[in-house]
Amino acid sequence: MTSNESGACKGWLIPGLLAVGGLVLGAPLVAQIERQHGAHVHGQANATLSQDGPRYTLELTIPGANLVGFEHPPRDEPEYTRIDETLEWFAEHPWLVLDDRGDCRVDGVSADATGYGRPGEDKPDGAHEHSSEPDHDHDRHDHDHHDHAEFRILARVECADPDRLRWMEVDLFRDFPGNEKVRIDSFTDRGQKQFRLTPDNRRIDLTR
């Protein structure tokens, strides 16, 4: 969805909105919101789980700090290696455990790190050009000027009998103690739900 049209609204407003509306109308019409930032909470990962027929898609967005401990562009070889190893871990490690009943298998995992300013890296959505500037210093928590570094992991699951699948487990708390919580919004045949996983509760109970 892109547009060059003005998104600001003018015209009538219902009375309850009038006070706020007055401020909007008084300001010059701005075509685009250039200063907006998504929330990014260290220690917490966000995920979405969707089901379309036999296919489940789990997408995790994990702050870089949770997995590798830093979110600045890698400064030396060990830091590059740490990012690469983490990406490999997701591709190779069986971190997504499935209930046997659904006759499911993990049908491919892709892992991606964004915001680290590594060569050839995809820019995260809405990233600014200068997020890869060399003088970029995360320790100053210069939140106005860069997007956070994140890992995005996409796992696809194919099930022969998706209705019988009762649970999934996301097991990355042991290997990544910096990742304390995973919030999962799910939308499956069984409706829209939200799960909060912690080291003590790693299970997505799909029947709930």
């Binding site: 547009s3 998104g7 075509a31 919101i33 919004d185 939308f187 409706g191």
Partner: peptide, 12 residues
């Protein structure tokens, strides 16, 4: 970018 919006899954 054009407008500050919120989309929700009502069940969530």
């Amino acid at each position: 970018r054009e407008e500050a919006l919120t989309a929700i899954l009502p069940g969530v």
